[in-house]
């Protein structure tokens, strides 16, 4: 610190602590895309371009049926782990076996919710917490995210405002998820499924 101060010492236009606090608490946004999107349409469009898939249902009670159909169509196991908020849904009626616990390395399908979603980039915003263990969206090969369409916001800036409003303290982990994990390290060829999920399927609930 001493060296930093000595180096900066006399340079022009230095601010003091109050000015810095003032700048930070302003939360001023920079330039932003001007387009007036239909948020759901834009989100859907972006999600598809990121190689995720998306479905839409009218109410939460329809989620198990939509999910079972997706898993069967893609030859995926009907066994999953989920965040606690989804334990109440009737999974067994769809032939599914769903446990409400954080994912382990061997789990193949993980079901999560989302704090909100960002239309500009097709991004899911996930927060860590007791009710939302991060491992569930990370370790399994298939990540299913159930998102309320009312929680789709325009850009990152709106997501930050929502976060400040609903969480006075920053959660330990805020993760943006935009599509399945990928790598292009070998010959710059994009390959889906690196260390995280191979596929991300989003179910929008109206």
């Amino acid at each position: 610190m001493g060296r930093i101060r000595a180096a900066l010492g006399k340079s022009a236009g230095r601010a003091d602590r109050e000015e810095i606090d003032a700048y930070i608490s302003q939360h001023a946004a920079g330039p932003r895309p001007r387009a007036e999107w239909n948020l759901i349409a834009r989100f859907r469009d972006r999600v598809l371009s990121l190689a995720s898939s998306i479905d839409q249902v009218a109410s939460a009670s329809e989620v198990p049926q939509a999910l079972a159909r997706y898993l069967r169509e893609n030859n995926l196991p009907l066994q999953a782990v989920c965040w606690p908020e989804f334990t109440q849904l009737d999974w067994t009626a769809q032939g599914m076996n769903v446990a409400a616990r954080p994912a382990k390395g061997s789990d193949l399908v993980g079901i999560t919710g989302a704090f909100c979603a960002i239309a500009e980039t097709g991004t899911l915003v996930l927060l860590s917490g007791k009710e939302s263990p991060p491992a569930t969206s990370l370790l399994p090969e298939t990540h299913i995210a159930v998102v309320r369409s009312t929680r789709i916001v325009k850009g990152m800036e709106e997501a930050w405002s929502l976060l400040r409003k609903e969480y006075p303290v920053m959660p330990r982990a805020v993760n943006f998820v935009s599509g399945p994990s990928r790598t292009a390290d070998i010959e710059q060829t994009v390959t889906l499924g690196a260390h995280g999920p191979y596929r991300v399927h989003i179910i929008l609930v109206d």
Binding site: R46, L50, P102, E120, T121, T123, S128, G129, K130, P133, P134, A135, M170, P171, R172, A173, V174, N175, F176, V177, S178, G179, P180, S181, R182, A184, G196
Partner: peptide, 24 residues
């Protein structure tokens, strides 16, 4: 960097796991 509008993951980490957290 890579021509992506956003990377697949952006991870923001703040502090250590709390008593409630299952991981971290």
């Amino acid at each position: 960097a890579t021509g992506q509008a956003i990377t697949n993951y952006v991870s923001i980490n703040t502090g250590i796991k709390s008593r409630d957290d299952s991981d971290g």
